[in-house]
Amino acid sequence: MGKIVEVLPSGADLISRSLTLVQEKITEAIAQRGICTIALSGGSTPKALYAAIATQNLPWEKIHVFWGDERYVPPDHPDSNQKMARQAWLERVNIPSRNIHPMPTAAGNPTADAAQHQTELEEFFSLSAGELPIFDIVLLGMGDDGHTASLFPYTEALQVSDRLVTVGNKDGQPRLTFTVPLINNARYVLFMVAGVNKQAALAEVFAQEADAIAYPARLIQPQGELWWLLDESAARNLNLVTSES
């Protein structure tokens, strides 16, 4: 299926709609498979969603939490995506610690830590050689340069197709990130994008033709559902008639 695009009047409406959709997909995954696997993103918009999820009554013991990318910093660092999600959500609910699967950043070697996390994914999902995990939910944001996860324009990580986790690069700083094939194997991918500063990149990402290496969010074309939730300020100049499916 193609992408589904919804424009919400405000950031608060975007969070409310995201919460509804994520709850629906969690419930659906647990009903069908007994557990739900969700990969989180960083950023201010997801933080508000995580705080909202923390107020819900969900079967936490059946939800397994991963991250789509992580800055290469200790887990207690202010820039850590893991720390943000723990404070906003995971420390506020009764989720078993074994259900939380952060990306490791302690080896002092990003490549080694990426390989370690790949092994964890392979073991958790009981993968055979060459198989990709199928995440129930992957949450993504988009930067004003068109990047998503830690897949930045014109970086080597965009081309990696033989691994699940690789090393991204942001202005010379390493980050761990899911690869494009892994994200694209998900059952449900949800982008949350807010702010006037996203308009130019969104126009390129939604264009009929544009360079995906320059605007990596274009590379996300999952085998499952693809949803874009935008606030009005981000979507103002888009021609959504040709973008929606």
Rank of each mutant, 00 (worst) to 15 (best):
G224T: 09
R98Y: 11
L121E: 05
K83C: 00
D144C: 00
Q23N: 11
S233V: 13
A200K: 15
T179Q: 08
F206V: 09
E28K: 10
V138T: 03
L21M: 15
R175K: 14
L139A: 03
R71F: 01
V167W: 08
P9N: 10
P181C: 05
S97F: 07
N197W: 02
A85G: 03
E91H: 06
Q82A: 11
A157V: 09
T55G: 15
A52Y: 04
P174S: 11
D171S: 15
P216R: 05
Q32C: 01
Y215K: 10
I4W: 06
L121K: 06
F178R: 00
S126A: 14
G143V: 02
R236I: 08
F135L: 03
E120D: 13
G130N: 04
H147Q: 07
L14V: 03
S245D: 12
P102I: 02
T55F: 00
K170G: 08
R33M: 05
F178T: 05
A107F: 06
F178E: 02
M142L: 03
P104D: 13
I15G: 01
W228R: 02
P78V: 02
Q87R: 00
R187E: 14
T148K: 04
I38S: 03
H147K: 06
T27P: 00
P174L: 11
V5G: 04
A212L: 09
K198A: 06
G34F: 04
A52M: 02
M103S: 04
A210K: 11
E209R: 14
E91W: 01
L49Y: 05
A203W: 01
E24L: 06
L230I: 10
A107T: 14
C36Y: 02
P174H: 09
R98G: 04
E156S: 14
G11K: 12
P46G: 07
W67H: 13
C36L: 01
Y188M: 04
L8K: 11
Y188K: 01
L158P: 09
L240T: 10
D113V: 12
D13S: 08
S243I: 10
L121R: 05
L40T: 00
A207H: 07
A88E: 00
Q159I: 05
V241W: 07
A112F: 07
L151P: 06
F124L: 15
G141Y: 03
A107E: 14
L140V: 01
V160R: 08
L132Q: 07
A207I: 09
P110G: 15
F66R: 07
K47L: 11
D136V: 02
Q173L: 14
A157I: 13
A39G: 12
S233A: 14
I35V: 13
P78Y: 07
N57D: 12
V165A: 13
N57H: 09
S233L: 10
I183N: 06
L182E: 09
T177V: 13
H117V: 12
G68H: 14
E61L: 08
S10E: 08
F178G: 00
A129K: 11
N237D: 14
N237E: 13
C36K: 00
A235F: 08
I213R: 13
F125N: 02
L127V: 07
R236V: 10
A200R: 14
